[in-house]
Simulated assay, not measured.
Amino acid sequence: MRAFASGMTDVGLQRDHNEDSYAVLQEFDLFIVADGMGGHRAGDVASRLATDSITEFFRSTANDDATWPIHFDANLTEDENRLLSGIMVANRRIFERSIRSRECAGMGTTVVSAVFSRRRNRLYVGHVGDSRAYRVRGGTIQQLTRDHSLINDYLMAMPDLTEEQRAELPRNVITRALGMQDSVAVDLMSDEPHLGDVYILCSDGLSGMLTDEQIRDIVQTSQDTSEMCRRLIAKANELGGEDNITVLAIRFLQDDVEIGDEPTLQVPLHRIAATVGDDNDH
């Protein structure tokens, strides 16, 4: 199979600048979304450092004799090691910039990144923070990542919290991000893509505005990955656009389809009409 991807970012309706970044490195089947934070517009510096550092690491380690600045974990595949190491290198660069520059002090960023191994037919996902990865397969959507957030940490430690107690917890506090310390814990997972699967990487400007079902319906009734991104962002803005919105859609197709020639999905007209009707109800 081959991975086709499109990405898009938007400032939203309530922010005056965009602190999100994304990258598609098609030659390495590498895909990244980062959501920055920090004063003096340093959030966009952090997110751009994250995407640039990871892509540069993949390019610099393409040769067999490349030097890796991070310990190689023999329990992980080479693809997992590259993804993990790239994120850790990004963390170090952001942290070092934040302690050198007063304007960048305290900056950080979330990141969700995926790399596809054609040889193993595995999609490896690494993430830090609350940017998410979803998989849409058939009529179902599944969140593949777990938010590193205060509310999730509470629920893991105290799963019997009442609805009232949960409602009192702050929902937008993340407990892990790149650049906060000189080292970072990265969550890694892997998935086996099937023909026709779509994976969505996004910042919380999307996941905080749309339900999983709304994301699934838009993915299923879009013609291609570019339309998926455009419609998902439009829907988030329609519902308030409270944050920057970044979406990266990855679709798996037959290997004989050339990059740049992504075929359109044959979406029945009644499904498109039903989705448009649903959108207008919100």
Results as ranks from 00 to 15, higher is better:
L195N: 05
N244Q: 02
L248K: 10
I215E: 00
R271Y: 14
H270P: 15
A74P: 12
E80P: 13
G43D: 13
T221P: 11
V219I: 09
H270L: 06
N81L: 00
M107I: 08
A50H: 09
R122K: 14
R2A: 12
C104N: 05
T221I: 12
T221D: 03
E56R: 08
T264D: 07
A23L: 10
D160H: 15
T110S: 02
E262M: 08
R120P: 07
M37Q: 09
I200V: 13
L201D: 01
F28K: 11
V173F: 07
I218D: 03
D256V: 12
D204W: 09
D217V: 01
Q223S: 11
V33R: 15
G129H: 06
M1W: 01
R119Y: 13
V128Y: 05
S222H: 02
S183P: 08
A185C: 02
S60C: 11
N81C: 11
P193F: 10
S53G: 14
F4V: 08
R176E: 01
R92D: 01
P170E: 03
N18G: 09
L210N: 14
I245N: 08
R271G: 15
L49F: 13
D224K: 00
C202R: 04
V186T: 09
D130L: 11
D187W: 00
S149Q: 13
G108S: 09
V112E: 00
E78Q: 14
S98V: 10
F4C: 03
R132H: 01
A5P: 13
T246P: 12
M156Q: 10
G86C: 02
L178N: 12
T67F: 12
G260D: 02
G38F: 05
D243F: 10
D10R: 05
S98Q: 02
I200A: 07
L210F: 03
H71T: 07
A167N: 13
R82Y: 10
I151Q: 13
P193S: 03
V24T: 14
L49G: 13
D204K: 04
E80Q: 13
V247E: 02
Y154P: 09
E242V: 15
R15W: 04
Y154Q: 02
E163Y: 10
G241V: 12
A50W: 11
T225C: 12
R59K: 15
T145K: 07
V112P: 10
T77F: 10
F58H: 00
E262R: 06
R102C: 01
Q220C: 10
R137G: 07
S113T: 03
P69E: 03
Q214H: 00
D10Q: 01
L144I: 00
W68D: 00
L269G: 12
L150R: 06
R118H: 10
A105T: 04
P69L: 00
Q181W: 01
N81E: 00
V257R: 13
A74F: 12
Q181T: 01
R100L: 12
T9G: 10
G277A: 02
R92W: 03
S60F: 05
M228F: 06
D79K: 08
M189L: 15
A167S: 15
T162F: 11
G38E: 07
I94W: 02
R15A: 14
T9V: 11
A114E: 01
L206W: 05
L269R: 11
A74D: 09
S149G: 14
G138D: 04
T225P: 09
T140H: 08
F95V: 06
F72V: 00
